[in-house]
Design a binder for these strands. Structure first.
Lengths: 189, 189, 189, 189
DNA sequence: GCTTAATCGAGACGGTACGTCAGGTCTTGCG
DNA sequence: CGCAAGACCTGACGTACCGTCTCGATTAAGC
């Protein structure tokens, strides 16, 4: 006795959906969030503007879906595990700071801009930058190794680390040498 | 032997400068950074658009000057000093999180948006949120009291704390109870 | 020995055809030709857009069919016959001008608009406004009564009368009093 | 002691006004009224869309101004005066019908379309097609020559003639030979 | 006091992108 | 295979701001 709310007529075109998300990712990475326009996406994806507006309410929602689909910041570095937490975190942070100085800052800033009107982007942002990896893998490992107190909230710890990195990205100045070590020392104690 | 390039004619109108900054602050707080427009500022300040463009290159520069003049986030909270660093930081963070939940989040988000195209706003933002006070006053005091290691970089520590708060503001969800304590525990060790 | 080109499947739905024409007539009279849209007709008739496009090439063709079916301007006035042609024509023109001043002008303008991209509508328009009646009935009668020269082309005469009325409808200003009499005097001599 | 309601600020750009009207006339004559778009005019005139909307409420208003400026149907044929009214009118009508058959019909239809939402265009249309010339010159002359009764309203007479021509233009079929003579006979008596 | 030049409020200008509407075509599943 | 429904691409709509330029009025230093 299934109620089966069946709808006649054409269904959403998967091709259009993919084309829009890929075009968005492409333009986002080359132009940044501010230069990203709905008209630009439509043109790049060879799609009518209405097809975008039919399924997404705003530019930031499209970007959010891009992140959900993993089209932005696809693979980000997870911290190594040499057995020494402090050394590993420092190396990881240092890698990110180097990335920021080589053009990554504008990408992060664009993502923050997108996150401002689409909170779900912020969640994915943290996740993409490694919160989950830090949390689930490296910190657990450190707890096992007795290098991180089991009573310390790992997620908040990760958030503080990522938050500091975001602030550095916004500040735009080149990080001074040793910034990674200082940051890890500061939060690790 | 200064040639004294003296300029004839009227000088910059202080009244216009003030009117513009105040109008900007007024609109920023009511509408947010995105809704803020140069035309809106000009109209609100009863000023010609050119008068704004003559002295500021962009919307974010005007907002930056507003912060410098202390017209935005005028009064911020500085951490108390009861002698117990952990308790004081927790109380301070908790106050900020409460502020965020009562409308402060959108203000912070607007400031972050402004900071994205004007890094100096980011500096002022951190400062306004208490980095300096934390740094110069409370942490020094904690070091004196033996509650904070002198080798720990206080500025990086503060940045991590503020960064975590900013991420929470972007996330937009209500902070779970005990978030302040968790955060302080996480970074303090 | 007809090969009987038998077509499989259902034939054209008369119900759909009627629904479309009636919906068109309904919308035409309430909204006018410009506001009339294919989407509007489809929605009003509970019909797929494709069903309209399958059978009519354009909006104006649908409107033309409406006229052919007599769904628009169904009842129009025919000139009376009191024996005095001048008096009868004046009364008839006066009736039409009064109709124009009471909302009829926009209907006529819509019909003219439709006629522009569908000449057959123009023919029906003239017919509907009375050309045929004038022609076939009243003028013949006048010729019999010796009030209209048999050598005068009745159809051209009717066209001039209707054309003047159309121009008055387009002009949109209220006709001055006595306009009907003046017009009849002008063309009748 | 003039009160001189002086307005500060820039004044309307005559260059832009001219460019818009000329672009409109150009496009109107090549594409017709329906194909005419505000965006097309703006592009053709190298002008921002807003500059058009600032001064004209609609497409038809722009076209109306074009007619007022005499950029459309600039000089139209006025009837000759050989002394014989019937012959002159017939020649004049015949000239117009010939023009209609050689592409003029679409121009007239476009003007009628424009007149539908801008009655002032209708006035100019009649005027451009010769109503005034007919009225003020030829008919007066005919009255003097005793070929036209002084009691016959010349303006209504002209309107009937032009109206008949407009209906013929809408009908789109080629006028049958002798149509001009028939029309003149019909209205002249 | 007169000249001169930079300021001011106001707002028109050429543009870009917005979000909406409708056009005409194509696709889906039902009858 | 016609039908209702509706997604698709296209293109114009009218609006909001952008940053620049142009007015005439005002203002203050220099002659």
């Amino acid at each position: 006795m299934q109620v089966s709310e069946h709808r006649r007529g054409p269904v959403r075109s998967e091709a259009a959906r993919i084309a829009i998300l890929e075009a968005t990712a492409r333009l986002f990475e080359t132009r940044g969030y501010d230069q990203l326009t709905m008209e630009g996406i439509a043109a790049e994806a060879h799609v009518g503007k209405q097809t975008i507006y039919r399924w997404w309410p705003s530019k930031s929602a499209v970007v959010a879906d891009c992140m959900v689909e993993g089209l932005l910041l696809r693979e980000y570095m997870s911290p190594p595990d040499t057995g020494d937490l402090r050394v590993d975190l420092t190396a990881w942070v240092d890698g990110i700071l180097t990335f920021l100085e080589h053009g990554g800052a504008s990408l992060v800033k664009s993502l923050v801009a997108a996150a401002i009107d689409q909170p779900s982007i912020g969640d994915r942002l943290g996740e993409a930058l490694g919160i989950n990896h830090l949390l689930n893998a490296r910190l657990e490992s450190a707890i096992d190794a007795g290098q991180f107190s089991p009573t310390r909230p790992t997620q908040s710890f990760a958030r503080a680390l990522v938050g500091a990195i975001v602030l550095l990205a916004l500040a735009d100045g080149p990080a001074e040498p040793g910034a990674a070590g200082q940051l890890v020392d500061a939060v690790l104690g």
